[in-house]
Write a protein that binds this DNA or RNA. Sequence first.
DNA 1: ACCAGAAATGCTATCGGATAACATTGCGGT
DNA 2: ACCGCAATGTTATCCGATAGCATTTCTGGT
Lengths: 203, 203
Amino acid sequence: MLSDNIAVLFPGSGMLLVKQDPGNVTFPKNNHDHGRCIAVALDKAAAVCMDRGVRLTELRRRVLEIIWQNHKPLGAYSILEQLRQDGRAAAPPTVYRALEFLLEQGLVHRIASMNAFVGCSRPGHISDGQFLICRSCGSSTELNDGKLEKVITRNSGSLGFTVEHLTIEVSGLCPHCRRARGEPAQYSNCPVSGEDSSGTEPT
Amino acid sequence: MLSDNIAVLFPGSGMLLVKQDPGNVTFPKNNHDHGRCIAVALDKAAAVCMDRGVRLTELRRRVLEIIWQNHKPLGAYSILEQLRQDGRAAAPPTVYRALEFLLEQGLVHRIASMNAFVGCSRPGHISDGQFLICRSCGSSTELNDGKLEKVITRNSGSLGFTVEHLTIEVSGLCPHCRRARGEPAQYSNCPVSGEDSSGTEPT
DNA sequence: ACCAGAAATGCTATCGGATAACATTGCGGT
DNA sequence: ACCGCAATGTTATCCGATAGCATTTCTGGT
């Protein structure tokens, strides 16, 4: 586990010490200090960009800030709308180019199942991550389970398939929404039954 | 492993014996008998629908057939175009309603990362499946790894998250395309390094 | 300080993906 | 034959994404 350092930068050194996002250690709590999430994310982003010699322009920074306004994946046109509310001239390419940059730098993730974008909780790390997305409140949590990625890569490899990119998105109910519905904690209420495992190598 | 039975139907019994899709036991070969894939898929679909008392209309059947013309996920508007080439009146809702039906019956899958649709290799089974999609040739293979689903469900559950739907899509290079590029078999050329596993319970 | 080239942004247009709302057709049961 | 409902046709509209080109802004070299 990482220690509790806040974004510390060693420019040009290729080294970067970052802090775990407090909102993502578990599922984001309704009452967490989200201002801190934003501040940390923007700090980390500045650090990563400086470290890599790329430019976190005002537009890009602002788009990142908009995405980080909460933990819910946000559509490109919602971002566009907010840019316009800033009084800025903006068209779709404005947003998509900023997003392209942020994706390249690993500062945001694209949630394919929603056509939306969410802040990366571990910028600077190269990983596609896994996402738990609540269908009720829309919040998402990023996991980075290296073991899971290895298992998939290994099973794919046994079929001769070379993995380049993983999309793993889980939709369901987060603990808060489940509790709000009076449903008890449970692991078994999943329609995805594990009835077999054909198609993959036995482990 | 299932025996090699071809689609056998017990109408109304709730039981259905189906054959493994020969094109999907491994990654689809370039020279496999795809006509058989199509015939089997359409037979299975008819069986599943009869079994469930739902109607596989001519339109729905045709859309399924179009999707099964190969193992490459197909966009809704490509389907639309082909329907029109049939001389049929068609607009987007025509396609999307047929797709909605086929998805509900588990006859096709939606590939979120491509906004496209592909035939289900195990119709009648309830599973989201996992997909290996070649970025070079576009072909996809469906896996159904119950263990993988269980691991994800369990890890999510340990965070209090109830899983309802899994999206697992892997993009990369299929064995045929990799070979065509002269790249040797390998498991390690994956940018998704397993550097850690923060965010999930240790197993 | 200036200039040239490159990077970033502005802008227009267009395409693909998806759905809402309502009209019409067709099928099954009585 | 009639009714009711499921399925399809039709129109319109919205969101997501990108191509292509013009303009501005930044950066590095002199």
